[in-house]
């Protein structure tokens, strides 16, 4: 029971990170029908930007308040990652819009290879580890000498994720931009005819996706304290799994899917085998797609003959 509770806490934390990345997949898929393969690497790039920002703030500028530093790191990472993703969409995907279906996918795979190698070349192939930013934990209770803890890091991740999801939800459901996005999802031509700037809306979708990935990247760096150029692929695939599990195109689905994947992974590691934890995530992906392709919150798809 106490192991279960601890893993529940860990799983929700990990799942929040996956959920933030998953929103990026689900939004981009919803609006241009493309699996943005490079999104996992955008997440990894954001973690590196956060790393640079953190080192800059603490060692160069000597900011000693961790809360302030973390807040600034988050802002810097979100800004720069948005710029990166905006440029990627502009250069690698926009020229291919409405073209051959596989072309954007290959372009995205190329971009994914480019990004991870770019970070490897510019920052070196080694793992980058930093001293823990936030320390301390609440001991919820102890049973059989096994303390169930909730660390401050985890609390921060829960809090930041919740706040940002609320902002994000407001953005896509209550603003003009959100309406434009939903219009483009339905029918881009029609949206353009009634005066929606489709290009701008798609650009903004990539910017929002990147900003949320940057939050995930910053949280990842804070939580694990280590990042490497190769860290984009596996979290990327898991977040994509989360998006599919929740029903691709569905925003609450992405968050719920993320938390489920986080829980499956931590529970699997605790009760079965940590070596095969990625197999668990990939199997969930395969099983979901085969037996529940519309996901938990997606609309069923009736075949048009």
């Amino acid at each position: 029971m106490e192991v279960f509770l601890q893993q529940l806490i860990n799983g929700i934390t990990l799942g929040s990170i996956y959920g933030l990345i998953a929103i990026g997949y689900t939004m981009v898929f919803g609006i241009i029908g493309m699996v943005n393969f490079a999104h996992g690497d955008v997440f990894m790039v954001s973690a590196f930007i956060a790393l640079v920002a953190f080192l800059l703030l603490t060692s160069f500028l000597g900011i000693s308040s961790i809360a302030l530093a973390l807040f600034l790191v988050l802002i810097v990472a979100m800004l720069f990652t948005s710029l990166v993703n905006w440029t990627i969409e502009r250069l690698a995907y926009r020229p291919l819009r409405g073209s051959f279906r596989l072309a954007p996918l290959i372009s995205a795979i190329g971009m994914s290879i480019f990004l991870s190698n770019f970070v490897q070349v510019t920052q070196g192939p080694r793992n980058k580890s930093i001293p823990p930013m936030v320390q301390g934990e609440f001991v919820l209770f102890t049973k059989n000498d096994y303390p169930v803890t909730l660390s401050f890091k985890q609390l921060i991740i829960w809090f930041v994720t919740a706040v940002l999801l609320a902002c994000f939800w407001y953005l896509v459901s209550k603003t003009r931009l959100g309406r434009a996005q939903r219009a483009c999802e339905q029918d881009q031509k029609m949206a353009a005819l009634v005066g929606v700037d489709v290009d701008r809306t798609i650009s903004m979708t990539f910017v929002i996706a990147a900003a949320l990935a940057a939050v995930a990247g910053t949280m990842y760096l804070m939580y694990y304290g280590v990042v490497s150029f190769a860290d984009g692929f596996v979290p990327g695939v898991k977040a994509f799994t989360a998006a599919v599990l929740g029903g691709i195109g569905s925003l609450p689905g992405a968050v719920v899917g993320g938390i489920l994947i986080g829980l499956i992974e931590t529970m699997w590691s605790a009760y079965f085998s940590i070596d095969y934890k990625d197999v668990a995530a990939f199997s969930v992906l395969a099983i979901t797609l085969i037996f529940l392709p519309q996901g938990l919150f997606g609309r069923p798809d009736v075949e048009k003959v």
Partner: peptide, 13 residues
């Protein structure tokens, strides 16, 4: 691999 990825994007465009 950096150039490989970049070439993939360029050739697709």
């Amino acid at each position: 691999m950096l150039l490989f990825g970049f070439a993939m994007v360029l050739i697709m465009i």
